[in-house]
Simulated assay, not measured.
Amino acid sequence: MARREWTFRGAGARRDAGRVRFRHRDEIWRDFPDLVPAVLFLDGITPDADVSRSVAVHTATALDRLGRGGESGMPEIQAWRRAFAAQGIRPTQYRCASESLLRRLRREGALPALHPLVDVCNAISVAYAVPVAAIDIDRVSGGLEVGYASGTETYVTFAGDVEHPDPREVIFADAGGYAHARRWTNRQSGRSAIRTGTTRALIVAEGLHETAGADVAKLLDALAEALREAWGVAPATAILTADRPAFDTAG
C-alpha cells in the first residue's frame, strides 16, 4: 500500500484552513517500531460539559491499579522510560505525561479539575497508563509532525517563556516552526493548550509496551465514548501504523 506523504508549508496551510493533519515522521517509526498511536479529532468543544461520570470511572480504575503496585512497575511506563533513555533523557528526571499524572494521583488521591476535555483525557490516561495529549488545533500552523528537533524550533511554556528544544529531541512540530510538545510526551506547550475558548482539538495517545496494540485500541474506544457523552459529537478517530502513518481530515 502506498504511504500517504505530505510536507507542511505556510502557504499550503493557509489554503487548507480548517484541515487537520497529523503524522509521525519515518525516523520515529524506524527508531520506535513498537509505537502504537491513536488520534482523535473533535469539533464542537465547550467548557461547560459534564464529564464527572467518565472522570470518576477511569480515575477509580487507575486508583485500583495503583493499589496493586506503583506506577514505575507498570509495563506501559517502563516502555516509555526505555524510550526516554534511548533519547538520552534521564527517565526519572523527565517523566512521560502518564507517569507524572499517576504519581500525582497516588500521592493526592485525585487529579485537579482544569477543563472538561483535559479532565477526561487525564482520567483515561491514568486508567490506561498511556500518555494522552489534547491540543487546541486552531493554535497550530498547518499540520503536526512528531519527529526529531533541529533545535531551531520555538517552544512556548505555560508561563509564556520561550525555549528551543535540544537537537534530536522528539517534538510535535508545526509548519510555523513551533514545537507543541517537548521530550515527546513530557511537556506540552502553553501555545496550544486547551483553554476556555477552545472549540476544536486534536487528541493523541501513544503506547510503546508489548500489548499496546490492544490497549491503545481500547483507550481509543473509551475516549471516543466519553467525548460523545460529553459533547454529543462523534469524533473522527484512527489508529496509525508505519504503513498508514497519517491522519488527515481531508480524507
Rank of each mutant, 00 (worst) to 15 (best):
M74N: 10
P75G: 10
R191V: 05
A134I: 01
A242L: 07
V146N: 13
F8A: 09
A234I: 05
I171F: 06
W184K: 01
L105T: 12
E99V: 02
L114V: 06
F247K: 07
A2D: 15
R82C: 14
G142P: 15
R23Y: 13
R90L: 12
A17V: 09
F8E: 15
P167W: 02
E153L: 11
D136E: 12
F158A: 10
D221H: 00
A86R: 14
A159N: 08
R168H: 11
A226D: 06
A60P: 02
E145K: 06
W6S: 11
G44S: 05
F84L: 15
G44F: 03
A85V: 10
R182N: 09
H115L: 04
W80R: 09
A234D: 15
R15G: 06
D248W: 06
A133Q: 04
A2M: 09
A13E: 13
L144S: 01
V51F: 11
D50P: 01
L144R: 03
Y155Q: 06
R195V: 12
W80L: 10
Q78I: 14
G109S: 10
Y155A: 07
R25L: 15
H24N: 09
Y178M: 06
A250F: 04
I89A: 07
A175G: 04
W80T: 06
D243K: 00
G70I: 05
L202A: 02
M74T: 13
V156A: 05
L105K: 03
R107F: 03
W231K: 01
S52H: 05
G143K: 01
H180T: 10
G147Y: 03
R3T: 14
A212K: 00
R53E: 15
A201K: 02
D174Y: 01
I239G: 02
D50C: 11
A56D: 06
Q93S: 10
F84A: 10
L240E: 07
L63K: 14
L114S: 01
G232R: 00
I28N: 07
T46L: 05
P33K: 11
R103L: 13
F172A: 04
I135W: 00
G160P: 01
S72M: 08
G251K: 12
T59E: 15
T196R: 10
H58F: 11
A226G: 13
S98T: 10
A113I: 08
H164L: 04
K218Q: 12
P116M: 08
A201I: 02
R106C: 08
I171M: 05
A60Y: 05
